[in-house]
Write a protein that binds this DNA or RNA. Sequence first.
RNA 1: GGGUUGGUAGCUCAAUGGUAGAGCAUCGGCCUUUUAAGCCGGUGGUUCUGGGUUCGAGUCCCAGCCAACCCA
Length: 495
Amino acid sequence: MPGVKGEFPVAMEDTNALIEQRRAKLASLREKGIDPFRNKFTPTETCLAARENYQEGRVVHLAGRVTAHRDMGKSMFMDIRDQSGRVQVYAQKNVLGDEQFELFKHLDLADFLGVTGTLFTTKTGEISVKIESFVILAKALRPPPAKWHGLEDTETRYRQRYLDLIANPEVSEVFLKRSAIVREIRAFLEHRGYVEVETPMMQAIPGGAAARPFKTHHNALGCDLYLRIALELSLKRLLVGGMDRVFEIGRNFRNEGLSRRHNPEFTMLEAYQAYGDYESMMDLVQGLVCHVAESVLDTLVIEHKDAEGKGVRTIDLNPPWRRVTYKELVREKAGADWFELGPGQRRQKAIELGAEIGEAYEDFEVTQAVFEKLIEPTLINPTFVTHAPKELIPLAKTSPEDPDCVEVFECCINGQEIAPGYTEQNDPLEQRERLEHQAGGEQQKLDEDFLVALEHGMPPAGGIGLGVDRLCMMLLGQDSIRDVILFPQLRPKAG
RNA sequence: GGGUUGGUAGCUCAAUGGUAGAGCAUCGGCCUUUUAAGCCGGUGGUUCUGGGUUCGAGUCCCAGCCAACCCA
């Protein structure tokens, strides 16, 4: 690869004694006519399966990464590990012969090894494989992180996640569970007749949320495009098209700050149901999250622990989840007379309560600041906060009971918004007005094609969005979104 | 963008302004049922980068880079 050296000058030049030693071992193997990078080796089973299907003397072919070795002189124990787990292998000089045994002794931690041998049980009772022959499948030219302490350095853990996965089994576990969570989301929705679709990530007009988009350029079309910030407007077009139950699990991109809770690209589930409304969508979210928790974690009670393993908080997902209006909740925390106060008094009281209020905040934003700063973080057990002020959400239908509010909910769990849902706006004229109002004087472009679609008629429908990363954080007890995203965004390191 | 903390061997971490260390890994020796194997001996450092103060800087000061956390 001729380009590599220029692109990764640091990696190519960076070396140390350990790397030199491994390169020397590689050269020495090649001199002996051994290629330690095999095209193929087919194990008969996984390391775990070999142990589970124990039968003394049974012949197995196993493959895995060398994770430990215990040199006994004329014999040697080694641990090899694949995704299923580890198994101990045992090599003896009189079985392998001098030359092969010498090769075996000089294997390095992190090398990939294929072995053929028979199952047996050691004195201490461990099921192991007595090696008859072995083959080096891939030589590791760099040392792995320490076996005992694991890998602690957050920067290395995120930049070189593969090392994190090798060194920290609990990290690996988190990502296997994340995969299971996504699988169970699909299973739940498909079981209820939802059709999974894929819609464009590159859009001429990024809509469906208020967020700064990433911009890119299409050369052949000669136009700028944006990475989507939400799935909503595409999926609603499908409701217009007669797909009555649709969902998409996909990446959204928002060109905003990074934090413990924000990654520039994140995974969103959105689902829409014709003839549903915000209430049926609350049932859906509750059912979905409970199904996922039960099938992946086998419990509805989630314990979050700190680094020392002490319980920090407990989240009880047992249904039914509390449903409370936005106004009720604000009255609970900010005073029963909150909505009877004048705007000036509200502002004053919000500041007294400890919310930070920007000078330009409109009245509804003052209340929203109180909600976000003082109320949301206290909602640990699942709570559906319904009937938000209509200024906050332009894509939902007005509530018949309270014309200042829209038929929406925000499902808060673990002190975070996890899933909003609405009775979707299907009146094209009302929708246009609300979007124009939201755009304000900013000349934000309206998605005219979306409005045309609504004019063709969209059935009454309920919709939800669900932040998959945040759901994973909540279910898996992770405090940082970076710990549920395999490759979180970091500043690129200068070569 | 602002604040706080941190960056030392491959990894995890020490080191009053005074010769940069330990454990593991690694290399060599002994050991044919060990498992964080054990015993003996060795190798390994641009202390993130660049300036400054000082007789002397890993340590103090300034600037920068990267990260984590908090705030906006």
